[in-house]
Design a protein around this nucleic acid. Structure first.
Lengths: 182, 182
DNA sequence: TTGCAAAACGGAGAGTGTCTCCGTATAGTT
DNA sequence: AACTATACGGAGACACTCTCCGTTTTGCAA
């Protein structure tokens, strides 16, 4: 890749990140991103063939953050419920960091063709670590996909209604209590 | 209202209902509805100023269905958990009857200006009946809005990923167990 | 340093969707 | 039958995603 192309690509991602974070994916047009990045529309689409692939690039590398959150939750000296809740809270928090991301990523669960497939896999792997660590403390039949769907559902609602964190916390508490074996 | 206008309005709603149900709100254009109903675009917009208001007309009267589902759940001769789960299952089922409705109605919770405000109020009222009937069997602090958000979150995921009913059922079981006092 | 070729560029325009507005047609009443 | 208010259809405005082609620029070899 030429130096000018790399510069343009980086600039596009940086500009799009700022716009998407504040206004959300839907409310920002590709033309708006192109103008703000001072590139032509053709340039923007050459680097990112669809709006969705731009969004994937904008959302930062997740693997490190996800693994750090899981490790932190699992090293807590606390009952299984508290460790699970710590992970679910971080998970939902990451999903709601950018307006609209929760719905997109959650809808991509189970779809290998989605630009977000790698991110979904990261989450499923993290859930699997939690399941293995908490083992018989969890209700029978819990799997990684189910956790992602439950947390994703909560995050979508929190995001679309712009709920405060105490509302999110009480919803996640219900989910955690449902997942813990009775 | 003139007879021809009433006929056109009914026809538009009928045609839109069929299209939205199968393909979902986003995938059907207003032009497609107009053509299928054999009216001009101006006529369609005169009857329904926005696509959203057409959708609201399409979704059938909910009050009867909602109240019937709550009454059925509350007359079950069963433990509180089973009665709650019966209501949550019907609630989610109604939300997922039309593709895309779950996200719209759930996002409208708490927004009095939304075309779906009346539908949200119906659900909140129903939840309140359930809370009052089940009373101390529920965890402390549960309110009608929280139930709607939790069930709405599940329904959004079920709808957007087109999950089978057993996947929905196991998610709702987690939510119900979380809502029941431990 | 110069020349060349491949990579990268910008932006006009195609295609699609929501919505508006104005000349024309029709229903309902007298 | 005449008249008027209501209702109509569809061309076009506006906005968005995306494509394609003539022009420019970068990077490498001589």
């Amino acid at each position: 890749m030429r130096a000018d192309a790399q510069r343009n690509r980086d600039r596009i991602v940086e500009v799009a990140r700022a716009l998407f974070r504040v206004k959300g994916f839907e409310a920002v047009s590709m033309d708006e991103v192109a103008k703000a990045a001072e590139v032509g529309p053709g340039t923007l689409y050459r680097h990112f063939p669809t709006k969705e692939s731009l969004y994937d690039a904008v959302l930062e590398a997740w693997a490190e953050k996800v693994n750090a959150a899981v490790s932190q939750a699992l090293t807590l000296d606390a009952p299984a419920r508290e460790r699970l809740l710590s992970w679910l809270t971080d998970y939902a928090s990451m999903l709601t960091e950018h307006k609209g991301a929760a719905a997109r990523i959650t809808a991509a669960l189970g779809d290998p063709g989605s630009p977000f497939a790698a991110k979904c896999q990261t989450y499923l792997g993290a859930n699997q670590r939690v399941i293995e660590a908490l083992d018989s403390a969890l209700r029978p039949g819990v799997d990684a996909m189910q956790i992602s769907r439950l947390v994703g559902g909560v995050a979508v609602v929190v995001d679309s209604s712009e709920l405060p964190s105490d509302a999110a916390a009480s919803m996640l508490a219900v989910v955690a209590d449902g997942l813990i074996a009775s």
